[in-house]
């Protein structure tokens, strides 16, 4: 079998550096209030964007199942506030939708 070792090491390096450098540079250092506010918004914006991307990039047969699963999980979590229950309900509903629509 072909060895992909060099490719994997290359991928590992370019993946690790963006994870490492900002934390190394910013930890234990005072950042001004504006920058801190900006950084504290990133969880909200990046999650919203990842959800949108998940729906936009899913293929035709998955799109309805994705929207139902994601929507149900969000709504159940909004009402009940239980993460595991919400996620499992989302998975179950998308499984049901997928099996009905195929």
């Amino acid at each position: 079998m072909k060895s992909y070792l060099l490719l994997i090491i290359g991928m590992a390096i370019v993946t690790y550096l963006p994870r490492l450098v900002p934390l190394m540079a910013l930890t234990n250092r005072k950042v001004n209030k504006k920058v801190e506010d900006f950084l504290s918004l990133i969880p909200y914006t990046s999650l919203s964007i990842l959800i949108a991307r998940g729906i936009l990039t899913s293929n035709d047969e998955m799109i309805l199942a994705s929207i139902v699963g994601i929507g149900a999980a969000g709504i159940i979590s909004y009402i009940k506030g239980n993460l595991v229950l919400s996620v499992l309900s989302g998975i179950l509903l998308s499984f049901i939708v997928l099996n009905i629509t195929i």
């Binding site: 999650l47 959800i51 998955m62 199942a65 159940i76 909004y78 996620v87 998975i91 998308s94 195929i102």
Partner: peptide, 24 residues
């Protein structure tokens, strides 16, 4: 395959489950 696909939705479901209560 259909189980794999719906489990894949699980991670996005988790993102939504984390985000929606914050909106409150």
């Amino acid at each position: 395959a259909s189980l794999q696909s719906s489990l894949n939705v699980g991670l996005y479901a988790m993102f939504a489950a984390l985000l929606f209560p914050e909106i409150k």
